[in-house]
Amino acid sequence: MEKEKEFYPVGALDEFLVQIGRVVEAGGRQIAVFRLSDGRVFAALNKNPHPKGGPLAEGIVSGHYLYDPLYDWKIDLTTGLVQAPDTGRAEMVPVKVEDGQVWIAAGALQPQ
């Protein structure tokens, strides 16, 4: 199986609280996982796209947006795009939920 199509488990869905970011360590990288109130799950590298950086997992989730408490940036979790007037993009990670388990794409776990 190609590495891009492989997924690895990072925890049971019930371990991810609704609207609260959670960091998982996988492949030496920190991944921020967000479970939305509508049941969807999104993941991103736990690195704020702001030039000064910072963790993403500490943001506040509302709908499908992540509100960054450090820089007051609004990030669309479906695309990773920072909303105007700010610009940038969070590095989103492919994630899926199967049989009550959250899975992260293997390609995202490669150290950079």
Rank of each mutant, 00 (worst) to 15 (best):
R40N: 11
Y8N: 09
E4R: 13
A26G: 15
D72F: 09
G39F: 01
S62F: 04
D86G: 06
I31Q: 02
S62K: 07
V95L: 14
V24S: 08
V18H: 12
H50K: 02
H64P: 08
A26I: 14
T79V: 08
L45W: 14
G28D: 08
G54I: 03
L66S: 03
G100K: 12
I75H: 02
Q110A: 13
A32H: 05
G63N: 11
E2M: 12
I20T: 15
A106S: 09
L70S: 10
G28N: 13
A84R: 14
G63V: 05
T79D: 08
A12D: 13
R40T: 12
G53P: 02
E6I: 13
A44I: 02
L66V: 03
G27I: 03
K47V: 15
P9K: 14
H50P: 00
M92L: 15
Q110D: 14
R35P: 02
V10P: 07
Y67M: 05
Y67E: 06
R29L: 14
E98D: 14
V102Y: 07
D99Y: 01
P49M: 00
T78I: 03
L66Q: 02
R22Q: 15
V61C: 12
F16A: 07
G63W: 09
M92Q: 05
R29T: 09
I31V: 15
G11E: 04
R40S: 09
L13D: 06
L45F: 08
E25L: 14
A108H: 02
L66R: 01
N48L: 01
V93L: 04
E25H: 13
G53K: 02
G39N: 06
S37G: 05
D38N: 15
P85G: 07
P9G: 12
M92H: 10
A108Y: 02
V41E: 12
Q83E: 15
L45H: 15
G28K: 10
K96S: 05
G54L: 01
G54W: 05
T78Q: 09
P9D: 08
L45P: 00
L17D: 14
R89H: 13
V23H: 04
L81S: 03
P55G: 01
V24M: 13
R22P: 01
G100L: 11
P85V: 10
G39P: 00
G59T: 03
L66G: 01
L70N: 03
D38P: 05
Q110I: 15
